[in-house]
Design a protein around this nucleic acid. Structure first.
Length: 884
RNA sequence: GGGCAAUUAGCUCAGUGGGUAGAGCACACGGCUUACAUCCGUGCGGUCGGGGGUUCGAGUCCCUCAUUGCCCACCA
């Protein structure tokens, strides 16, 4: 090998050898930390803070790939670029994993008590926070570690309290008794979003409620039958309802029944919410444990009897069933009903049952006193911001999903009966009954001076703090320089599954607290699925640690596969094959660089354009086109397409063609030509490294390291700008490459030994000089010798293969291989194909509307195609005549 | 009950101002051609889910149906 640095470059790219040290060098160079420069517009992304519940998985690698791509690209554009890292305390989720850990030690959180339990969770946070950061580093995330945040940091916690108090003082936070989703396992309230509904094969129980004796006299039946899927809730019934228009029951409205087991006397009421077609048309009403019944109860002033303890067991209201878990109570109630002859029948019934999204326990609707955010006043401006384009969703369709949710949004229960999270900044004075919301812990009650205040024991929904993330991380509520400079952020990149949980809340809070939309663009990637298309989840056991993949294929391969294998908003599967392909691409680039470096030092001065060959000018032209299209695709967030274009350019054009051509030019014996070729090789390689760096930061930086004369790292190199194209050179090379292709094709078809050189005649017509200038390239790449290039021939050679390249005739006199009969058949087949093409073109051109209505350039192009086809047909006909 | 996506080569997927269908993998044939066998060359392979419509022209726009997946919805 000729030399320079390639000695240090192994034959295959070894990511493990370079990744970690390159990351350290980036980090130490300070490239991740932007300098505030008010003369320039910054580019900012705040990381979607990973939950500290555990290690990162594949899905996280996805957001790293996209965000780091944008970040590195903008950094190369010269903008002050901030990617702010951090993690989320993830209230209920983290509390659950730590509780599960305790359970393995035979403990519950109550054994530790609140303080010790929270300390235990902090230990967990330290451990997993560190693991997550290590994983981000292995992925190559160029985040600014000097600005790392955690949602429970003191400053961010203060932001939470300030936000709460401001909403409270504005009357947008209230406390009240409403029916909510209750998870008995987590013993906390949940928002609607945290409840997963699953279709379940359940039962519909028909239960007889006896009429009170006084009512029995004037009616026919002595009981009314109701249907329910949750018979145990009958313990909390306070009425039976029928539809007022239901003739079966009109006579019973106003009568009373006796609730079995409990003995409570329940009125039979009329309410239009009752569907006469369902069940018996009579429904038991349990205002405390069913949202519908809650509404009915409100309309009719019914009492609500809560029959459940927080842990899901039946409380004293359940009489004989007190103490049983609700599901055991169901069985017991059914059995007792049966014994007493009150169970009419049981039907199979499919219905959806709410489950806790965190622990999967069955959710119980329950009346409970909670804190709520009055959401409509926040939602309206948030809808407006998207509607008027201040925030743009990519892909756009998600804006509709956002609107649909925001327009039907319900008040947000924000208190959680948990220990891990931001304590609600509200204190109660038990002496005078005052409720105090305060950023700082109040010393005494402002109205009665009582110093013994009791803080609300609950914590806030974890998404309350996440909603503040884009600005709390930059210093809000303080008016910091970071906040002024980097906020609003540029792009919010995340999965479409947390639009409601997170994106919507950030928009509402951002507008409410800062008066500005928190970001300009919401880019939503699809969810990562396994090779079988299954959603990845811990319970399915198909989650993979990205580090395992990085160890096998390299971080570049993982990132490239994630970014190019997907379309925004569409799910993707990641297969081994895709990862292999991406790894191979990194290796291809590595080896292209090894070749370029092996050619020796490039000239330091740009060569005279006149010294460039058509091939040189062609690859430079193609490179400039690539720069232009990659840049514009990135502007349009078409990351996958830009990645594919780069792949195509690097592999098919630069490696497969130009490098092969360069070998010929370098070995031509012409020192000047060899030198300009080296210049072109280095020039294009340099550009490729820059363009590819946001996709494959490690391999590109590693190669950059070997390039001569680099005094700074690629991470801070400038993004290239597109130079002029050279259509002339492109046309010439298109002809030459096509000629080489058809010759190769014929060689393969006729089984010419790969190494054998054969004679070829190109009838170049007016292109003689173009072919002549590329003679040595054609000879080498098509393996022809001697090569005869003529403008015309009087008589075509008889015993030769006749090929056409863009209408140019090429003859391969392969006397011993050519069977005239076979040749004739080939010619006839070609002719038939061309005639079919020309016929369809003629058809189009003759259609009345086409020539008049289609754009002139389209018509023109079709005419040219027709002319070219006609010319080819003519040549083949001549050839056939010659063969005859 | 609403809504959204997907349906393109054997497989996984691109195809984003409508203008002659692409890639990777797989497969077949031939190659260790001194950057790379994680490679090179050549080839095979698609009535773009069905039906209708708009248009000179539809994978691309509209309607409809089918299959699959997902989201939303207080289905006792």
């Amino acid at each position: 090998m000729a030399d320079i640095e390639t000695g240090a470059m192994p034959k295959t790219f070894n990511p493990r050898q370079v990744e970690q040290s390159l990351y350290q060098r980036w980090l130490q160079s300070g490239a991740f930390t932007p300098a505030i420069d008010w003369s320039q517009r910054p580019f900012t992304i705040v990381i979607p803070p990973p939950n500290i519940t555990g290690e990162l998985h594949y899905g996280h690698a996805m957001f790293v790939a996209f965000q780091d791509l944008m970040i590195r690209w903008h950094r190369m554009l010269g903008q002050p670029t901030l990617w702010l890292p951090g993690t989320d305390h993830a209230g209920i989720a983290t509390q659950n994993v730590v509780e599960a850990e305790l359970a393995r030690e035979g403990l519950t959180r109550f054994d530790l008590g609140r303080e010790r339990f929270v300390a235990r969770v902090w230990q967990w946070k330290e451990k997993y926070g560190a693991i997550i950061n290590r994983q981000l580093q292995r992925l190559g995330a160029s985040v600014d570690w000097t600005r790392e945040r955690f949602t429970l940091d003191e400053q961010l916690s203060r932001a939470v309290r300030v936000a709460f108090v401001r909403l409270f003082e504005k009357g947008l936070i209230y406390r009240g008794n409403y029916i909510v989703n209750w998870c008995p396992r987590c013993t906390t309230v949940l928002s609607d979003l945290e409840v997963d509904h699953e279709e379940t094969n359940g039962k519909l129980y028909y239960i007889r409620y006896p009429l009170v004796p006084t009512d029995r006299a004037h009616t026919d039946p002595d009981a009314i039958v109701v249907a329910t899927t949750r018979p145990e809730t009958m313990l909390g019934d306070t009425a039976v309802a029928v539809n007022p228009a239901d003739e079966r029951y009109v006579g019973l409205i106003g009568c009373h029944v006796t609730l079995p087991f409990i003995g409570r006397v329940l009125p039979i009421i009329a309410d239009t919410a009752v569907d006469p077609a369902f069940g018996t048309g009579a429904v038991k009403v349990t205002p405390a444990h069913d949202p519908n019944d809650y509404e009915i109860g409100r309309r009719h002033g019914l009492p609500a009897v809560n029959i459940l303890n927080p842990n899901g067991t039946i409380n004293a209201e359940g009489g004989p069933f007190a103490g049983l878990d609700r599901l055991e109570a169901r069985k017991a109630v059914v059995q007792k009903l049966q014994e007493q002859g009150l169970l009419v029948r049981i039907e199979d019934h499919v219905h959806s049952v709410g489950h806790c999204s965190r622990c999967n326990d069955i959710i119980e609707p329950m009346i409970s006193e909670q804190w709520f955010v009055k959401i409509k006043p926040l939602a309206e401006p948030a809808i407006q911001a998207v509607r008027d384009g201040r925030i743009r969703f990519i892909p756009e369709r998600f804006a509709r999903i956002y609107f649909n949710w925001m327009e039907n949004i319900r008040d947000w229960p924000i208190s959680r009966q948990l220990w891990w999270g931001h304590r609600i900044p509200v204190w109660y004075c038990d002496r005078c009954g005052q409720t105090i919301a305060s950023v700082e812990t109040p010393a005494r009650c402002p109205s009665c001076g009582n110093q013994e205040l009791r803080q609300d024991p609950d914590v806030l929904d974890t998404w309350f703090s996440s909603g503040l993330w884009p600005f709390s991380t930059l210093g809000w509520p303080e008016d910091t320089e970071d906040l002024r400079y980097f906020y609003p952020t540029s792009v919010l990149e995340t999965g479409y599954d947390i639009i409601f949980f997170w994106v919507a809340r950030m928009i509402m809070f951002g507008l409410e607290f800062t008066g500005k939309p928190p970001f300009e663009v919401v880019y939503l990637h699809g969810l990562l699925r396994d090779e079988h298309g299954e959603k990845m989840s811990k319970s399915k056991g198909n989650v993979r640690n990205p580090l395992e993949v990085i160890d096998r294929f390299g971080a570049d391969a993982l990132r490239y596969a994630l970014v190019t294998g997907s379309t925004p908003g569409n799910d993707m599967r990641l297969s081994e094959e895709k990862l292999e392909g991406a790894r191979n691409f990194a290796n291809k680039l590595w080896n292209a660089a090894r070749f370029v470096l092996s050619t020796g030092q490039p000239p330091t001065v740009e060569p005279d354009p006149a010294a460039l060959t058509a091939a040189d000018r062609w690859i430079l032209s193609r490179y400039h086109r690539t720069v232009a299209s990659v840049s514009s695709l990135l502007e349009e967030f078409e990351f996958g397409e830009a990645g594919r274009i780069l792949y195509e350019f690097v592999w098919s054009e630069f490696c497969d063609w130009y490098i092969e051509i360069a070998k010929v030019q370098i070995r031509s014996g012409d020192a000047a030509r060899a030198s300009t070729t080296r210049w072109v090789l280095f020039r294009v390689l340099d550009g490729i490294l820059r363009l590819l760096h946001p996709y494959m930061p490690f391999v590109t930086e590693a190669i950059w390291d070997h390039l001569p004369g680099r005094d700074s790292m690629l991470i801070v190199a400038r993004w290239p700008s597109a130079g002029p194209t050279d259509p002339d050179a492109e046309r010439t090379m298109d002809l030459v490459m096509e000629a080489i292709r058809v010759i190769r094709n014929a060689r393969a078809e006729f089984r010419v030994e790969a190494g054998r050189r054969i004679h070829a005649v190109i009838v170049a017509e007016e292109h003689v000089s173009q072919f002549e200038s590329q003679r040595s390239i054609i000879e080498a790449l098509a393996r022809v010798e001697p090569l005869t290039i003529v403008s015309a021939i009087s008589e075509p050679p008889r015993r030769a293969l006749h090929l056409l390249a863009r209408g140019i005739a090429i003859y391969l006199p392969l006397a011993e291989m050519v069977d005239l009969e076979v040749e004739r058949r080939r010619a006839e087949q070609d002719l038939a194909r061309l005639r079919a093409q020309i016929a369809s073109l003629d058809h189009r051109l003759s259609e009345p509307g086409f020539t008049t209505k289609a754009p002139p350039e389209v018509v023109q192009r079709e005419r040219e195609r027709r002319a070219a086809l006609a010319e080819q047909i003519e040549k083949i006909e001549e050839r056939l005549a010659a063969l005859a």
